[in-house]
Design a protein around this nucleic acid. Structure first.
Lengths: 210, 210
DNA sequence: TAGATTGTTAATCGATTAACAATC
DNA sequence: TAGATTGTTAATCGATTAACAATC
């Protein structure tokens, strides 16, 4: 599929475009230009065309793009035409919120299980989802065919949990713990740092003063 | 303070370094080299030195950096030596989880108030924090001296909430809604997209197959 | 045909990496 | 002095922007 290396920034923007197009589609608009997409999401029109060009030719010169068609292509490129089962380890505040976050479901991610090692939490329900013993992880990964695991545990046990996830067969990890995880090359990982965004704001607020 | 333009990627890494140093400091280690920091957080040693060089000279040639000292400098640079009051609008799953997220408090962010417009939510308590009517926002921003607001509402009302935040006097916005917000130039904003990280994993998992 | 907009190439810009003199 | 490591400059790499031929 991918001949040349695609910048990660491009993938992020494709996700943004796809959501913007979903919104435009809902309004019943049929055709859109790169310039309109650009204005809608806050990038340049050249950027939009360049990003799309990595994957093919989706538009018509002189006309623009068919909204529904382009949306479909983007969802396909992003791998969002099938549902991804996801498992979460850590049923604290963050893990629980993520488990019930509707935004994931909207984009095709289904929580196949949430796990913890705290006996007081195991067996409790989050809506319809029962918190399971983390020892059940390998079993659930297998039966649900999950590929993606979310690490929502304290930093001290994040590496251990990540190791267990990989042993269980997960191929991708989304790490919410503020700790660098060591993983094999073939596993895909992303680190999400909730605090860092506030810290960047803090930095810029501070810089403004001086 | 800042003579030349500092890459945002540098700020993000400074935040990562600072947290790694906190961990090292707790272990009682006094001196560290750029190479060790680099290995600890997964970047190159040249990158570490370059990032620090934007702000001054913090090390000793032939020796390395004093852990506690460098940690202090980084916290100062990031503006984390004072506590930032933060307000959250939207007391749904995500907003509530963020309000109670301990990771923010650890890094100096204190939730000064959480707001909603749903009468069923107003008056309810999240731990010790009472969910307030969104009409009280301007008042709380003023009395708490908050500068930072977190948008945790559905996309449809995100712009409206952002406008209200800015009218209330907030100078920085952390936007969790998947919608581009229009804000005045002097306001700092960051968009956090929880789904996009899963989508990137989805993309790479898909690309591996072909 | 005239006007509009794509896809793509070349130019620019910015960030990372490599290398090394300075110096502890 | 010898070894280590910083701070900084220059080289490399990669991503964004500008420009325009292709074409609807």
């Amino acid at each position: 599929m991918k001949a040349l290396k695609i910048p990660e920034a491009t993938i992020i923007r494709l996700s943004v475009y796809s959501r913007y197009l979903a919104q435009i589609k809902r309004k019943g608009i049929v055709t859109i230009s790169s310039g309109e997409i650009a204005r809608g999401v806050g990038v340049s029109s050249a950027q939009v065309r360049k990003d799309l060009a990595y994957f093919g030719e989706f538009g018509t010169r002189g006309v623009g793009y068919n909204v529904g068609e382009l949306y479909g292509y983007l969802m396909k490129i992003l791998g969002l035409t099938t549902q991804w089962p996801v498992v979460i380890v850590g049923a604290g505040k963050l893990g629980s919120a993520l488990a019930m976050y509707a935004g994931f479901l909207e984009r095709g991610f289904k929580v196949a299980g949430i796990f913890d090692n705290d006996p007081r939490k195991i067996g409790q329900k989050l809506d319809n989802l029962e918190i399971m013993d983390v020892h059940k992880l390998p079993e659930v990964v297998e039966t649900s065919k999950a590929s993606i695991g979310i690490v929502a545990v304290p930093a001290e046990v994040a590496q251990e949990v990540s190791d267990m996830m990989i042993r269980s067969g997960l191929k991708a990890i989304l790490n919410f713990s503020p700790r660098m995880l060591v993983i094999p090359d073939e596993v895909v990982m992303r680190n999400v740092d909730l605090s860092v965004n506030l810290e960047i704001l803090s930095f810029y607020l501070g810089a403004q003063k001086s």
